[in-house]
Design a protein around this nucleic acid. Structure first.
Lengths: 239, 239
DNA sequence: CGCTCATTTGAGGAACTTCAAGGTCAGTGG
DNA sequence: CCACTGACCTTGAAGTTCCTCAAATGAGCG
């Protein structure tokens, strides 16, 4: 179980983790908070990490993170819940550049590494104090939460559609969120995606195969790498 | 279509609306923003309304409300989307005391009256400016968005469960949100609830009947009024 | 190469939807 | 007061989609 008091000392090993340099972090942060040097300094005093987690390791349990918000430096983070009957739901995926951890701990979601990932921990109280002094920071925080809210609402709408539509929408959205690169590297497992879409892996597989047979997507080197061939057709399936 | 420039003049009629006194409004607002008299004054300068909407009338289209957030004074508001194939999804219900309207307009949700309702419109820019001067207001805004995010995530989890579980959870949650009164008055239509739960009205009806036959709930006077009889049993169905 | 684990495919079953009809209730007018 | 109306909810039977279970195939790795 994640014990975040660990992070009060910067640069520690934890849970098979390895500490990386902060160069990438600053670059990512700059995208969110701008290039203001004094502000960067204040922020880096609040942050711990980045900490590396290997795939499927628990980053934090929701109750543990009331004191921190998190920032994804690399990899994919999933926020999920296992119900009493054994089924799992993935509530959200967080990608590099996402600032998350606002939700109430009452849901007791588990924050886990969907791939190998680097995560930055930021003192919530310090960030809120900073926000009350600097309007830009306050705006960033409000933007981060409303963005996450918007994605959650899109997710709700998605769960009302057919399996094929869910798969097509997921792949297209992921492609957009990852910057519309030529090839889409689907780095999370089919199990994670299925639990996100409210499907079984079998139905997900059949849906993706159906999209492939329709000529809308095609698989490149590995099965994890896709080429979205017919964006217009995909848009039509997405409804 | 709702044209919010209308509200730049206070106390107007709009869309078969009738203007009510502000007594209730201030009481509701006090719960959220506290009893600070100068702050109340500043806030009331930002607000327009309350405006009354009759059931099934459109309060605002998402694109229209970039300049306003909304506050429910009485009744139930639904935020929903009609897809191209004709199916409708209800993303969220807002109850008296809820402050909403943060989500990005890209989703183009429609904000509608699920029952007769009174809604207060608050200038977004003014509220944000106030938040940057008053930390309490900033906290209220962040709390409002994170609360809504938490509810959206609970909604996502709910859509992964069985029809009976969804119905039981919906009724129990509504009962809690409405203050745990003895009897639960379900004021929205079954169609609205079904679209919220991702079910048909038929399946919803069958699920509620099943709950009744199990002795977990019972109907009182009208079909819209329920008594949650066995909270322990409901909890078990909710999983 | 041979192991393991993830993905794919197939057949059968369960849950939910669809379509159709009947029932209930509040409001309306005779 | 009572029949009539229309909206809403309930119930039944048939159909669809997705899930479950089982087995085969493929990919990654020592």
């Amino acid at each position: 179980m994640a014990n975040l008091d660990f992070y009060s000392t910067p640069f520690v090993d934890f849970n098979h983790t390895k500490i990386f340099g902060t160069a990438d972090t600053v670059a990512h942060f700059a995208r969110v908070f701008g290039e203001d040097a004094p502000l960067q300094g204040t922020l880096s005093a609040l942050q711990r990490g980045p900490v590396r987690f290997y795939r499927d390791n628990v980053i934090a349990l929701d109750e543990d993170v009331v004191d921190y918000v998190m920032f994804v430096v690399s990899g994919v983070v999933r926020s999920c819940k296992i119900c009493k009957n054994g089924t799992r739901s993935v509530v959200s995926f967080y990608l590099p550049g996402d600032l998350f951890g606002w939700t109430e701990p009452t849901l007791s979601l588990s924050i886990e590494a969907a791939t190998d990932t680097e995560v930055l921990f930021i003192k919530r109280s310090g960030l809120l104090a900073l926000a009350s002094r600097d309007v830009r920071v306050a705006n960033v925080l409000l933007t981060a939460t409303t963005n996450e809210l918007t994605r959650a609402q899109e997710h709700i709408l998605l769960l009302g559609k057919s399996a094929k539509c869910r798969a097509a929408t997921f792949l297209t959205d992921l492609w957009v969120r990852l910057g519309k690169a030529k090839y889409l590297d689907v780095s999370m497992s089919h199990q994670d995606i299925a639990d996100y879409l409210g499907l079984t892996t079998e139905t997900l597989s059949r849906s993706i195969t159906a999209l492939e047979r329709s000529g809308l997507i095609s698989r490149v080197a590995s099965r994890r790498q896709l080429l979205l061939q017919n964006h217009f057709g995909l848009r039509r399936v997405m409804n």
